[in-house]
């Protein structure tokens, strides 16, 4: 990757901020978070939580300002198939026999890192 180290770190920070916001929001809404940044062989799952009895995999997308595109736009077909593959890997490793689903959580921050909007999209794979 050509980006300088500084920029990359900044993006990572933004990401962690978004994940923290998502975690807090979900816990406030009765979700039981079980994993944060779970690493499988392929990639990372941002958040894994229980919504009552349903195991939910949450992909968090964070952006500062929307002038270069919305976070929703970054979840394309390719990304979704990767999410499904990751989730299936997790299910296989943990031998999970429960109902599952994949959610997306989009956070937009303003220049001062304040939350401009956050949206929870349930069940994005169906």
């Amino acid at each position: 990757m050509k980006t300088s180290n500084g920029v990359k770190t900044k993006n990572l920070e933004t990401g962690y901020m978004g994940e923290a916001i998502a975690k807090k929001y979900l816990e406030d809404n009765g979700y039981r978070v079980v994993e944060l940044n779970y690493r499988t062989k392929y990639a990372e799952i941002d958040l894994i939580a229980y919504d009552k009895d349903v195991l939910v995999f949450i992909e968090v997308r964070t952006k500062i300002g929307e002038q270069f595109g919305t976070p929703e736009e970054t979840i394309n077909k390719n990304k979704i198939s990767r999410l499904i593959r990751n989730a299936e890997a997790y299910i296989a490793i943990k031998n999970c026999q429960k109902e599952c689903r994949i959610d997306a959580f989009c956070v937009v921050l303003d220049k001062n890192r304040k939350v401009e909007r956050r949206n929870h999209y349930k069940n994005i794979t169906l």
Partner: peptide, 8 residues
Amino acid sequence: AGKGLPAF
């Protein structure tokens, strides 16, 4: 199915 990721 009662388990697994939602799909059609």
